[in-house]
């Protein structure tokens, strides 16, 4: 369980995180979504006690990070796969981490096995590919078998195989009842990985909900209407106060109305219908709308 309360971070004049409050529950993957520069990494550094909040606080299982005894046993984090001395071997890197939190040396071999680095564990970490570095970072996060896991943009730069591995891996961790917070600036990725979303833009909270709710609430639901009588039907729907867009393929997209309402209007006016189907906006569209750097795409027609 992670709880942020009024978290704020200023770097000089830049407000990186602005009065952010959210909570992350155990047992599922929570996506931490926002465009680049939204303040995701800064928030994660504050969760981990690396950066000091300008105001507000963030608690892990009710305690600030610095208040955790042997913190690697409670929280595992992968903020940047490059946080390793390039001339130190993966095994040596994990060995000092294990030692620092009173973990047995055999844990090092276990996590190396889990992430599939056993064969190269004695090689210097500086020679690893990005995918291997990422695995080493995950091994470090798992070392203390923690209940809370944080990953900052873990799939950035990985090949499709690596992305799939990490996605399944995080879902496996959540299925074991752990708290998993994963940041990303990619909607498409979060839609596949996360069941809950904390969405931020310019350091501010935009929404916290399930992924599905987020889409339903934010993307304007529309209804696709196909009819040979669009020329008359379109203006009629506009008169009723709905937003209508001509798709250019003898169909209209009507937003602000349910399919029931449109069906009733069509029947009452004696029009012919070839199709009446509710459409769900994509997560990408929802995200663009909410974070504000999207072009307005629903132009009105029919007037």
């Amino acid at each position: 369980m992670i709880e942020a309360i009024g978290l704020t971070k200023r770097y000089g004049k830049t407000v990186a995180v602005d009065d952010l409050s959210f909570s992350v529950a155990p047992g599922k993957v929570t996506g931490f979504l926002g465009p680049n520069g939204a303040g995701k990494s800064t928030t994660m550094r504050m969760i981990l006690g690396l950066d000091r909040p300008t105001s507000g606080k963030v608690l892990i299982d009710g305690k600030p990070y610095a208040g955790l005894h042997r913190p690697l046993r409670t929280v595992g984090a992968l903020l940047d796969a490059k946080w390793v001395h390039p001339n130190r071997s993966a095994r040596a890197h994990l060995r000092w981490l294990a030692k620092s939190n009173g973990l047995p040396a055999r844990r090092v071999d276990e996590v190396l096995e889990t992430v599939g680095l056993t064969a190269v564990a004695g090689k210097r970490a500086g020679g690893y590919s990005l995918g291997m570095s990422q695995r080493l970072g995950i091994a470090a996060a798992l070392l203390g078998d923690p209940q809370v896991l944080l990953f900052d943009e873990p799939v950035n730069g990985l090949d499709p195989e690596g992305i799939l591995w990490i996605r399944n891996f995080m879902q496996g961790l959540a299925a074991e009842g752990r708290t998993v917070l994963v940041s990303s600036h990619l909607l498409s990725e979060m839609a596949l990985t996360a069941s809950d979303l904390v969405v931020i833009g310019k350091g501010k909270l935009i929404s916290q909900s399930t992924t599905q709710e987020f889409v339903e609430r934010s993307s304007e639901a529309s209804v696709k209407v196909r009819s040979p009588q669009l020329g008359a039907l379109g203006p009629l729907l506009v008169d009723k106060g709905f937003t209508v867009r001509d798709n250019g393929d003898t169909s209209l997209s009507v937003s602000g109305a349910t399919s029931d309402q449109i069906g009733d209007i069509v029947a009452a006016n004696g029009f012919v219908l070839h199709e009446l189907s509710p459409q769900r906006g994509s997560l990408e569209e929802a995200f663009m709308q909410l974070t504000g750097d999207a072009v307005e795409y629903h132009a009105e027609i029919g007037k």
Partner: peptide
């Protein structure tokens, strides 16, 4: 300084917040 250069200082402070 190499701990700062390679950010292993952060890994250190994560492991030992004191």
């Amino acid at each position: 300084t190499t701990e700062y250069r390679f950010s292993t200082i952060r890994a250190t402070f994560l492991a030992v917040p004191n």
